Deep mutational scan, measured.
Amino acid sequence: MSGNGNAAATAEENSPKMRVIRVGTRKSQLARIQTDSVVATLKASYPGLQFEIIAMSTTGDKILDTALSKIGEKSLFTKELEHALEKNEVDLVVHSLKDLPTVLPPGFTIGAICKRENPHDAVVFHPKFVGKTLETLPEKSVVGTSSLRRAAQLQRKFPHLEFRSIRGNLNTRLRKLDEQQEFSAIILATAGLQRMGWHNRVGQILHPEECMYAVGQGALGVEVRAKDQDILDLVGVLHDPETLLRCIAERAFLRHLEGGCSVPVAVHTAMKDGQLYLTGGVWSLDGSDSIQETMQATIHVPAQHEDGPEDDPQLVGITARNIPRGPQLAAQNLGISLANLLLSKGAKNILDVARQLNDAH
Rank of each mutant, 00 (worst) to 15 (best):
A151D: 12
P313Y: 15
L137T: 04
N358M: 15
L64C: 11
E242H: 15
R355S: 15
E242F: 15
Q275H: 14
A191E: 01
L244S: 12
V235S: 02
E162V: 14
D359R: 15
V90F: 05
N118C: 14
P119H: 10
H305G: 14
V215M: 10
M295V: 14
F51V: 13
A347D: 07
A112R: 00
K132A: 11
D289K: 04
K128D: 09
E139W: 15
I110E: 04
S344R: 15
F51N: 05
P324Q: 09
D240M: 04
G317K: 00
C247E: 05
L220P: 00
L206W: 05
K128Y: 09
E223G: 08
E162G: 08
L193E: 02
K43V: 15
K62I: 15
A219K: 00
E135A: 13
N171G: 11
V282Y: 03
R195P: 03
A303S: 10
L76M: 13
F125C: 01
N88G: 09
E310V: 11
G221K: 01
H268V: 14
S57R: 11
G236T: 10
I205E: 14
R116N: 04
L100E: 13
Q194S: 04
I299A: 11
A151P: 02
L49W: 08
L244V: 09
A152H: 14
Q328L: 09
A297F: 00
A266V: 15
A266S: 01
T58Y: 00
L154M: 09
L276S: 03
S290E: 15
L343P: 04
L104A: 09
S45P: 08
C247Q: 00
R173Y: 01
T58L: 05
I291K: 13
G346H: 05
K115A: 07
G111W: 02
P127D: 06
V90H: 06
L42P: 02
L104E: 05
A266L: 03
E242A: 14
L68M: 14
A339E: 02
R325W: 13
Y213Q: 06
N358K: 15
V143H: 03
E306W: 11
T145F: 10
G60F: 00
L351H: 11
P119C: 11
R201N: 07
E210V: 11
T78L: 10
D99C: 00
A122S: 09
E162M: 12
L285Y: 15
V90M: 09
L334F: 11
P324F: 03
C247S: 10
D233V: 07
Q155P: 09
I166R: 04
R195V: 03
A84I: 06
L134F: 07
G216Q: 00
F129D: 08
A331V: 05
S141I: 05
I113F: 01
L174D: 02
S337E: 06
L341F: 07
V90I: 11
H160N: 11
N169V: 12
L76R: 11
D352N: 06
Q194Y: 05
A151Q: 14
L148S: 06
R201D: 12
L244F: 02
S344G: 14
L193G: 13
L193N: 06
P264W: 03
S288C: 10
Q194D: 10
F77K: 00
P327C: 02
A189K: 05
D91Y: 05
Y277T: 06
L92G: 06
K79A: 10
I231D: 13
C261K: 00
L238K: 02
Q194E: 06
N358G: 04
T58N: 10
L49I: 06
D352T: 07
E258R: 02
W198K: 11
L92D: 00
C247V: 09
R164P: 07
M212V: 04
K79Q: 10
Q194H: 05
E258W: 03
F129V: 10
L104R: 07
V38L: 08
L341M: 10
D240V: 12
E209I: 04
A252C: 00
R225N: 04
V93D: 04
G281N: 00
E258M: 02
V267S: 05
A84V: 09
S290M: 15
D178V: 11
L343W: 15
D230I: 15
L85E: 03
R150K: 03
I113D: 04
K272Q: 06
D121R: 02
K132Y: 11
L188P: 05
K140S: 13
L170Y: 15
S165A: 07
N88I: 11
L315N: 04
V316P: 06
Q296L: 13
S57C: 10
Y46A: 07
V353D: 14
S141H: 11
G287V: 15
D273E: 11
F183S: 10
A214Q: 01
L278N: 02
R246N: 08
Y277R: 11
E89I: 13
Q314D: 00
G216I: 00
H160V: 05
V103H: 00
A354R: 02
A84S: 09
E242T: 08
I186H: 08
G144R: 07
T145Q: 04
H305F: 01
S141F: 08
V265H: 00
G131W: 12
L338R: 04
L177R: 04
G317S: 04
P241D: 07
F129N: 01
L257R: 09
G317H: 02
S288P: 12
L97F: 10
F125I: 13
V142Q: 06
A214C: 10
P208D: 04
Q217D: 00
Q181E: 14
S96G: 10
